[in-house]
Nucleic acid binder design. Structure first.
Length: 173
DNA sequence: GTTGAGCGTT
């Protein structure tokens, strides 16, 4: 539900937004102090090296969508600012800050869509927890606005409904 | 006339 960015967001909340960008960025960078001191010797069994550390889900492995959800935007930030901030990271197919049509002002978050996942990953790792317009922005994979129609077009309730239970009672014996 | 949770208009 809530990505790890939420924790940082809460911690960053209540602090003076823009005072010293240099000092704040240092603190943010210190958070990512990960030192993998595991040196797998060739003589050792690689079996144990496989399960190194499943520390957090907030890893940086692969993105699943070129669409990024930018949160933590300043209310002064607009589409152009967001585009300018994510432009040099790849070809932006879409960069828009969501604004309420009622109030007509930014909701504080936006979306950026890159051409490829690589650009999205790059921009994400490069722009995650960075300063934009005096506020720390968080970039995370955006959820599909329009859910996929039917990858599983099961018009059930019409078939016999025989659920073939593949649960073989063979657990090693 | 700003201080903060969250996923957008076509």
């Amino acid at each position: 539900m809530a990505p790890s960015s939420s924790l940082l967001r809460r911690l960053l909340r209540g602090s003076t937004p823009v005072s010293s960008s240099s000092a704040a960025s240092s603190i943010l960078r210190a958070t990512f102090c990960s030192s993998s001191s595991s040196a797998p010797s060739p003589t050792e069994s690689p079996l144990y090296s496989v399960f190194v550390d499943d520390a957090e889900v907030s890893n940086v492995p692969p993105l699943t969508t070129p669409k990024l959800f930018i949160s933590g935007l300043s209310r002064l930030t607009t589409d152009e600012n967001l585009k300018n901030a994510f432009a040099p990271f790849g070809q932006l197919l879409e960069a828009k800050v969501i604004t309420d049509r009622i109030s007509g002002r930014s909701k504080g978050f936006g979306f950026v869509r890159y051409a490829t996942l690589e650009e999205a990953e790059n921009a994400r790792q490069e722009m995650n927890a960075k300063f934009l317009d005096g506020w720390v922005i968080f970039v995370d994979p955006a959820k599909p606005r329009q859910q996929k129609p039917a990858p599983h077009p099961d018009t059930d309730s019409s078939h016999t409904g025989f659920t073939t239970n593949k649960t073989v009672g063979c657990f090693g014996f």
